[in-house]
């Protein structure tokens, strides 16, 4: 479904700040895979997601979605296939626009934007029902500006936006990291529910190893721009946090102690 083939990306090439973010990355996702991604800071997790989303061009390699080469496709054109939720709750929504308007924008992902009305009455009713499923009471304040919502509420809305028009691929970039633990758990459970109900192929970055084990059918660990560990199915289900830590220690020669992965 998604194929990342030998992808390289270096930031600030030729300067003192040169950083090889992706170093010959290879990854193939099957249809319906829910993959959790872990790895230390600077391992290239977010870079991988941004490369797939087309935020900037990659230096080398190929990215295919459903067999179609999207490597040279611009970000907004790739959006047709991809739903995204970001780490920063501010990033996924238009703060000065209403909840309903944000959803309407998302429901037109991948379609030509014409001079037809931006949000129809029928849509309004659909969104009302949809927001009810969040159980956050947002259905009663649909025309409120998204900027007035809390971080957790915004992430929930962004999640709906990313999946409103069923994407071929869902990219979740530490989307609960900026939330308090209770809210994070809620948003994560909601993500899991949406992914399963729609059978979405998903890449989810998390820095919480327990979550990485608990959710999804496959887990990958990244280090220095590559995948160094890839487990699925039964084997993944039986993983312990200590296994992951050990695994990481092996490859990173102990410089792992400084990493915030320890926190989880």
């Amino acid at each position: 479904m998604l194929e990342i083939k030998n992808v390289y990306k270096t930031f600030n090439a030729g300067t003192v700040n040169e950083k090889v973010a992706l170093n010959g990355l290879d990854l193939t996702l099957q249809d319906g895979d829910f993959v959790t991604v872990i790895g230390g800071n600077g391992a290239g997790k977010s870079t991988m997601l941004n490369a797939v989303a087309g935020v900037w061009p990659i230096d080398m390699g190929k990215i295919l979605i459903d067999g179609q080469d999207v490597t040279r496709l611009s970000e907004h054109k790739r959006a047709k296939y991809i739903g995204r939720v970001f780490q920063d709750p501010m990033m996924g929504t238009a703060a000065t626009m209403g909840i309903d308007e944000n959803l309407a924008l998302a429901s037109r992902r991948g379609m030509a934007r014409t001079l037809r009305t931006g949000i129809t009455k029928k849509e309004h009713e659909e969104y009302h029902e949809l927001l009810k499923t969040l159980e956050l009471g947002l259905e009663d304040r649909m025309t409120s500006k998204v900027g007035l919502l809390s971080g957790g509420q915004r992430q929930a809305v962004t999640l709906l936006m990313a999946t409103l028009k069923k994407p071929r691929l869902l990219l979740l970039d530490e989307h609960t990291a900026a939330l308090d633990p209770k809210t994070a758990a809620k948003v994560l459970a909601l993500s899991d529910k949406i992914v399963h109900e729609n059978h979405l192929t998903t890449l989810m970055i998390t820095h919480n190893m327990k979550d990485a084990i608990r959710y999804g059918n496959r887990l990958i660990m990244m280090y220095e721009g590559r995948i160094i560990y890839d487990v699925r199915g039964e084997e993944k289900a039986n993983l312990q946090v200590s296994d992951l830590l050990q695994r990481f220690e092996q490859v990173s020669d102990g410089d792992f102690a400084n990493d915030r992965m320890l926190l989880s």
């Binding site: 991948g110 037809r116 931006g118 936006m161």
Partner: peptide
């Protein structure tokens, strides 16, 4: 009328949050 159309809403989203707009397939 114009800023209430699909195109006009896209322009408003572009001005408000270009990252989000591109993620929603809007040609910013």
């Amino acid at each position: 009328w114009f800023f209430g159309t699909e195109l006009g809403c896209g322009i408003r989203a572009t001005g408000c949050n270009a990252n989000m707009a591109r993620a929603q397939g809007i040609n910013t």
